[in-house]
Amino acid sequence: MVVAPIQPPKSPLAQTQENFTRYLRNPSEVAIPEGLDPRRMGVYQNLVYENIFSLLSGFFPVMVSLFNEEKWRALIAEFIRDFKAETPYFPKLGEEFIYFLSEREAQEDEPAFLLELAHYEWVELEIYMSEENLQTPIPQEQLSNVGLSLSPLAKPLAYHYPVHQISEDFQPKTPPPEASYLLVFRNPQDDVRFFELQLFSYQLLCQITQSPGLSAQEYLHNLCPETHTNPDDFLQQGMGLISNFNDSGLLAQV
């Protein structure tokens, strides 16, 4: 038999706070705590809601533009009601919203790419705000032999939908046959940029991310198909790519 642990009774302070916040999270279903003025409790409910609404609207400008106001407002209300965001840091609230989106069941009339788009918008913001710095490029003559890692300021991404093209006027209903491979990164001017990657480049960057410390030669050997007719060409092209990432300060020596 499983015995449930006995919960100590809540202190009056804990009970007061629980009654208060339960209402703020779900004002349409939870009663206002006894004895408190409905109008003034409405002020609190409004402050909590509008603050989170304006933070999240700022983090996901593209996603917001795809919703009509009423639906976006309803989604935020759902977030406040159902999700306990833990981060004390305001810029990280966007990440909490991604967790929320990934855990909830999407509604039928919502675009299927919503979570991918939100993730893409979040990664851009995360890289913009990151405390990391770009790397000093590794000297060219050492580049093929030293152990490499990918800067946290560069993120190779793969999406079913072309999230980088989605806008109010372009909202695909089904994913195209080819996935989208993107690199989001920060440049020396501290702006965030992206470009589309070939599948090969995506795989190379993923390898460097997942198993850092190998040399450029090793990564390229691992990726070169055994059936490749001209492995030297392959290696040369690959080194060209690595050299470009290195010039952009996106590779570090480990």
Binding site: S11, P12, L13, T16, Q17, E18, F20, T21, R22, L24, R25, Y44, L47, V48, N51, I52, L55, I80, F83, K84, A85, E86, T87, P88, F90, L93
Partner: peptide, 18 residues
């Protein structure tokens, strides 16, 4: 915080316990 953040400044009761 009620186990999650509400990101607002909620009032405490003016009690000895608080």
């Amino acid at each position: 915080n009620d186990g999650g953040q509400l990101y607002d400044l909620l009032p405490l009761p003016f009690t000895e316990e608080a």
